[in-house]
Deep mutational scan, measured.
Amino acid sequence: MISLIAALAVDRVIGMENAMPWNLPADLAWFKRNTLNKPVIMGRHTWESIGRPLPGRKNIILSSQPGTDDRVTWVKSVDEAIAACGDVPEIMVIGGGRVYEQFLPKAQKLYLTHIDAEVEGDTHFPDYEPDDWESVFSEFHDADAQNSHSYCFEILERR
């Protein structure tokens, strides 16, 4: 099963200049909980913004210009990325925008964090048809001392 995991502000903004323009430790914990011990696929820009392999996960970098870091697996196509994951129950696609666009048609599940923030962004989550998805989990949280904005975790499964 292919799943996408993303944090989205208003207007589906997911990033600005290779960074997330908010401070939500709870979302980072949600991300870790849902990706640990699963292969993660990301684009080169996302890889560069993280700066290191995510521990406890097979890191697969999709790029037309593969790098030389041998701590991760470099691939040039969506099919190659899927094959590099091996026989696993769930593959997690973690961004960025172009990689989400490439995998959305193949995805069966979306793990979304909806952030109540209007922020400037240069990267967006692809538009998706809500009628194609069923919400199977939703959990709202107010902003607090650690988390700069209110947010809602949601899991959607393709109908």
Results as ranks from 00 to 15, higher is better:
Ser64Pro: 02
Ser77Phe: 15
Lys58Phe: 06
Glu118Cys: 12
Ser150Phe: 06
Ala145Pro: 05
Val13Lys: 01
Asn37Gln: 08
Val75Asn: 05
Glu48Gln: 11
Met16Trp: 05
Glu129Pro: 12
Met42Asn: 01
Ile50Ala: 03
Trp74Glu: 10
Tyr128Ile: 10
Glu134Cys: 08
Asn59Met: 04
Asp127Tyr: 15
Ile60Asn: 02
Asp144Ser: 09
Asn147Trp: 01
Phe103Tyr: 01
Asp131Leu: 06
Pro53Leu: 10
Glu80Tyr: 11
Ser135Ala: 03
Lys106Asp: 06
Lys38Ile: 11
Ala145Leu: 07
Asp132Ile: 14
Asp144Ile: 06
Ser148Thr: 12
Arg44Met: 09
Gly51Ser: 06
Ala26Ile: 07
Pro21Cys: 14
Glu80Asn: 05
Asp70Gly: 07
Arg71Pro: 07
Arg44Asn: 15
Glu17Trp: 00
Val88Cys: 07
Ser64Leu: 12
Gly67Cys: 12
Val75Ala: 04
Ala6Ser: 15
Glu90Arg: 04
Phe153Leu: 13
Val72Leu: 10
Ile5Glu: 02
Ser150Cys: 05
Pro126Ser: 11
His124Val: 13
Glu157Leu: 05
Ile91Met: 14
Pro89Val: 09
Ala83Trp: 12
Glu154Leu: 15
Glu120Trp: 13
Ile61Gln: 01
Asp116Gly: 15
Ser148Ala: 00
Pro53Asp: 07
Asp122Cys: 00
His149Met: 00
Gly67Trp: 03
Arg12Tyr: 10
Glu134Tyr: 09
Ile61Val: 05
Ile115Asn: 08
Gln102Tyr: 15
Asp127Glu: 11
Leu28Gln: 00
Ile14Ala: 13
Lys58Gly: 05
Met20Asn: 01
Ser49Phe: 03
Pro89Asn: 05
Gly15Ser: 00
Asn18Lys: 05
Ala117Ile: 10
Val136Asn: 10
Ser77Val: 15
Glu120His: 12
Ser3Asp: 02
Asn59Trp: 04
Gly67Ser: 11
Asn23Ala: 13
Phe103Lys: 02
Phe137Thr: 12
Pro66His: 12
Glu80Lys: 04
Pro130Met: 13
Pro55Gln: 07
Tyr151Ala: 13
His114Gly: 14
His141Lys: 05
Tyr100Pro: 03
Asp122Ala: 00
Arg44Val: 05
Ala145Val: 07
Pro89Trp: 09
Cys152Asn: 14
Ser138Glu: 14
Ile82Glu: 08
